[in-house]
Design a protein around this nucleic acid. Structure first.
Lengths: 195, 195
DNA sequence: GCGCCTAGTCTAGCGGTGCTAGATATTCTA
DNA sequence: TAGAATATCTAGCACCGCTAGACTAGGCGC
């Protein structure tokens, strides 16, 4: 009996945890969808609460840090996705082909998910803290870039390549580069970094 | 008489305009100082009004667009300054020396005036509009970069270099690059772009 | 079955934000 | 000096992130 009750209890507990987990998921999805559609400024705790069918304080049960913690959680997933995308782009390619492939993948990712990319890099989060959270994911993406250019040094070249990709993605989105010269830029970048 | 009055009137008018101009200056200075010290989020219209010794609505007499227009005005000055800094850095240098000098100047500028640089590139302004405002200043800075690398093509190389400098400056500030490898990064960048 | 206790949720509100309509004070003009 | 134009302020709107405290529902020991 006691065992049965205990079993019930844990089942209940896991059911509850499952519900909690699912609601957490819905919060993050709603935040990301809204940010993609209207920008992060439009992602308000009130709107988020309505989206998931609860009131504001419920959000703080899942994310005590409030909106910034929600953004951080979204960003974290972004780092994972970006690393996967870069890794896949490198694939079996080597040399210039690898650099070009990873550059295309990186810029496409940033262009396709502007809000996500913003949360990852432009959000007003404490850099130190955000870096700790995302350290392993960041390392994986960094490693993918290093592989692409065959960086066998101390990582300096990879840092510069990353900087270039990061800067180009932001300037492109800001409309400060000629959109019809994107391919030329990628070719130029690859040519300068593939060896 | 009429002439005298007219003269008076214009003198008065110019005195008034001078006062207006000077107050506009104080608004921009206060905004920039506060942003440098506490970040743009701490630059509120209320605080700004107190800083200049007036009430909020006065700000809107100078900048009908409100806070965003103030940021835009600050950014505009930033573009001018950045262009000057880059131009001065290039100086008489040519080849690799020119690229290295302009890279140091650019990254130093961004590091020395983080809030200003943020207003220039990361602010949530309408990109299209901001670009129109700053077009001539941007072109001047772009031209300085083009001169540094001796871009005699269609500007693609300059765009990529700019992207690299922009990205590196942001990643550095975000604490995502090894601060003690700054010189190596600049050397690497210069080596890849100086020819 | 009864009362407690915990967890979950909501209501209501705080202090802050950008911004503005309308009243008021000041200055210039005729 | 009376009236017009200009400058400035008061007071308020609607929104923001966030939270204290009230209320409800369900499992637990008796």
């Amino acid at each position: 009996m006691a065992e049965g009750i205990k079993g019930m209890a844990t089942a209940e507990g896991s059911a509850r945890r499952r519900r909690t987990e699912e609601r957490r998921r819905r919060i993050l999805d709603a935040a990301r969808a809204r940010a993609d559609a209207e920008g992060w400024a439009a992602v308000t705790t009130r709107h988020l609460a309505v989206s998931i069918g609860y009131t504001q304080p419920v959000l703080y049960g899942h994310f005590p840090g409030g909106k910034s913690e929600i953004m951080r959680a979204v960003a974290l997933e972004g780092f994972t996705e970006l690393a996967q995308v870069c890794r896949a782009a490198v694939g079996e390619n080597v040399g210039c082909r690898a650099v070009e492939a990873v550059a295309v993948a990186y810029l496409d990712f940033a262009a396709a998910h502007p809000a996500l990319y913003e949360a990852m890099f432009q959000s007003p989060l404490d850099a130190r803290f955000a870096q700790q959270d995302a350290e392993s994911e960041l390392r994986e993406g960094f490693a993918a870039l290093a592989d692409a250019i065959g960086d066998d040094g101390d990582g300096t070249v990879t840092e510069v390549l990353w900087g270039a990709l990061h800067g180009l993605s932001l300037l492109e989105r800001a409309g400060r580069l000629r959109t019809d010269h994107r391919d030329e830029r990628i070719a130029e970048l690859a040519a300068r970094f593939c060896r």
